[in-house]
């Protein structure tokens, strides 16, 4: 790990988020300092992004996903105001302006998409892609093979992972062919579902939802915001893997720092640390 100041991460809880505990554990294992705060305190301004390097919107069902997954929380980001009258979106924009990073996983990704924070090509914070209902038509909890690709997860490089997906609306749809090409050209497709042969997965079950271009995770154009459907925070130890017993019996590689979801958080922390060092220099 690169030395430097501790990376502080704001993890939201409440209002229907469900994954704050394992998310905090993930950041801790990666050497960061997570602070778990109630989302209502962030939306009111009682908790601010000052001093944080990363904002993490975790998985769950914010506001019950009543109007579509992530819609209401995205509304709060786009239209809401802190108690002092500042627009929430302005605080987010300022946070990104000073090099802050945002990670959204599952429901967090759905929020980022609806709030226009990914891919945010052109920087206008308008919704450009969507996460539509899985083609199977229902929620699914299953492990899938993924590869980090394109611009890549910070310095994670091109690597393969098994990860759990747990969602009903994860089918990434690009708003237009032009936008799809742009995202590809700019290398924003940071994570793809894989077939057994290692190619991008086009059909179920390898592609669990029917996402275009097998997209499992997407960067913002500026590379500071990343959303993904799979749950690396649910794979912090080798015994989370469905075949952990077999892998252990056969003596296969179970290195947690590189094989599990920990790798994602380590990469993000490392990138934030590097950024802090560069700014410091």
């Amino acid at each position: 790990m690169v030395g430097g100041p501790v990376v502080r991460v704001l993890v939201l809880r409440g209002l229907g988020f469900n994954c704050e505990e394992e998310s905090a554990a993930a950041w801790q294992l990666a050497g960061a300092e997570p602070v778990v705060a109630h989302a209502s305190d962030w939306l009111s301004g009682a908790v601010r992004l000052d001093g944080f390097a990363i904002l993490h919107l975790p998985g769950g069902f914010s506001y019950g996903d009543d109007l579509g997954s992530g819609q209401v929380f995205a509304n709060r980001i786009r239209l809401g105001r802190l108690e002092d009258g500042t627009r929430v979106l302005d605080t987010v924009s300022a946070f990104l302006g000073r090099g802050g990073r945002i990670i959204g996983i599952c429901n967090g990704f759905q929020i980022l998409v609806r709030a226009g924070l990914v891919p945010n090509i052109g920087g206008q914070f308008v919704q450009q892609v969507a996460l539509a209902a899985n083609l199977c038509g229902h929620f699914v909890d299953r492990w899938v093979r993924c590869r980090s690709a394109g611009m890549s997860l910070a310095n994670l490089g091109e690597r393969e992972f098994d990860l759990p997906v747990r969602h009903g609306e994860g089918r990434l749809v690009f708003g237009s062919p032009e936008l799809r090409d742009l995202c590809q050209e700019k290398g924003l497709i940071g994570l793809q579902y894989l077939e057994a042969d290692g190619g991008p997965a086009t059909t179920e079950p390898a592609n669990p939802n029917g996402a275009e271009l097998a997209t499992a995770g997407l960067w913002s154009e500026d590379g500071q915001v990343f959303g993904m459907m799979p749950h690396p925070e649910a794979y912090l130890t080798f015994v989370n893997h469905p075949d952990w017993g077999g892998r252990q019996r056969r003596g296969e590689d179970n290195d947690e720092a590189t094989q599990t979801g920990q790798a994602f958080f380590r990469a993000w922390v490392e990138a934030a640390t590097r950024h802090a060092a560069e700014v410091g220099r």
């Binding site: 994954c19 998985g59 929620f139 699914v140 649910a234 989370n240 469905p242 075949d243």
Partner: peptide
Amino acid sequence: VVRLYDHEVKGKTVIKPLMGPTG
């Protein structure tokens, strides 16, 4: 039925209803 239920949220599930190399 099993795959409709989230059996891994909280990240603590070690033996889930369906396991093994092909789940």
